[in-house]
Nucleic acid binder design. Structure first.
Lengths: 214, 214
DNA sequence: TGTACATCAGTGAACGCGCGTTCACTGATGTAC
DNA sequence: TGTACATCAGTGAACGCGCGTTCACTGATGTAC
């Protein structure tokens, strides 16, 4: 046998990691396989020993960007602020640092518009990944994950209404903050949204459960 | 003189309109000049009699997509519901029809991620257009357009905090509803967000001003 | 321990393709006489 | 009113380029003896 199984696995992971960063930073359409392989220190031909096509890579990289194994932005931030997870998540999501480093940030604001135009398998992988992300976020929210209503279409797992609104709202704010070319306006979008979502979802008047803090 | 000035103006406008639709539906990178000119019934070479480059077209089409002259989504919807403009805007923005026809919808969810990676002139045109849009939206909101605080950076025109949060939040919800491949989940994102933004911004407990309705 | 061998990750030339843009041209048009 | 002319919107072949993908190859490696 040539090389080791471990060697191939590592190369594949390197490609996947580079892709998940590049896609978020530059967009799926702007990332070329030759350039991507160059970043990993290989030539373009070798790509097809690891992935069937660019589309297959996009699908996998989407999942990776949201952090399928639980090692993602949400858990990392939450671990750093025990007892105050939700406020910490909102603060981090709507930070200048998140705005300025899309390559390691949430894939929703950077990729969702392009994913919506991608073929079915890619959209499916994205949906699965974002669903997991939403469930994770919901676990940190005051209202319990599954709401008691909606008797007609009670299916899509355990995603809470609040998590849906919070994540999509923060994603929209980050999207706008990144697009705008006036730094003062961009900062203001972050500040205003941070205050709004903290006040609405991470303080007493949330939805259920009252608690600590003034 | 050949043809008339009017003739040239009309052709230019046709290209611009086709571009603003195609960009929103397919993304800037996926729209090719040859295909675009074909849609207008012309060949690709003629494009450069009307626009200096594709980038110049993108910048103008962004402005057009938001409706620079005041003839846009917001005013159209508001006119149809005198006295209840804000609720009507939220309902229309987060409707299935808006989700399913991006080519004539708001440019924020469909184009912002790509615009953030575009050269400076394009980003500037986008920022101007979205600022106007935000001001227009603010005019329909309970709180007055310019807030009384922020003495250090009081510059960016008259965009209210509420308008910032509402537009970016709705854009994020539409973005997510379009990306997801599960129709039930997509509908739920729209329904939940519509209820949330209506409750938060278009009912008595808004920010200031109490009024009608129960 | 040393050598022959089979495997297959990685190489790089080549493919067909569509892109944005240029340019010599053509032919429909409004104006001057 | 009818004809000659100048203008320039629109044509379409051509440019250089980089894309995704294929494929005959090469050479580093783990295994068998």
């Amino acid at each position: 046998m040539p090389y080791s199984k471990e060697h191939k696995r590592r190369t594949r992971e390197q490609i996947l990691r580079a892709a998940s960063h590049a896609f978020r930073a530059e967009g799926v359409g702007a990332v070329a396989i030759p350039k991507l392989m160059g970043q990993v220190g290989l030539t373009h031909g070798g790509f097809y020993a690891h992935f069937e096509s660019k589309d297959a890579l996009v699908a996998e990289a989407c999942a990776a960007a949201f952090g399928e194994g639980g090692e993602n932005l949400l858990t990392k931030v939450a671990e750093g602020a025990p007892g105050d997870e939700l406020r910490a998540i909102i603060r981090a999501y709507l930070s200048r640092s998140h705005r300025d480093t899309p390559e390691v940030g949430c894939a929703l604001p950077s990729l969702a518009a392009e994913i919506a135009r991608e073929p079915a398998p890619v959209r499916h992988a994205f949906t699965q990944a974002v669903s997991g992300y939403l469930q994770q976020l919901g676990a940190y929210m005051p209202t319990s994950p599954a709401d008691a209503d909606a008797p007609d279409d009670a299916s899509h797992d355990a995603i809470g209404d609040d998590a849906l609104v919070l994540l999509s709202g923060m994603a929209g704010a980050l999207l706008l903050a990144r697009a705008v070319d006036d730094p003062a306006l961009s900062d203001r979008i972050l500040r205003t949204s941070r205050a709004f979502y903290t006040r609405t979802f991470a303080e007493k008047g949330g939805e259920a459960e009252a608690g600590k803090t003034t």
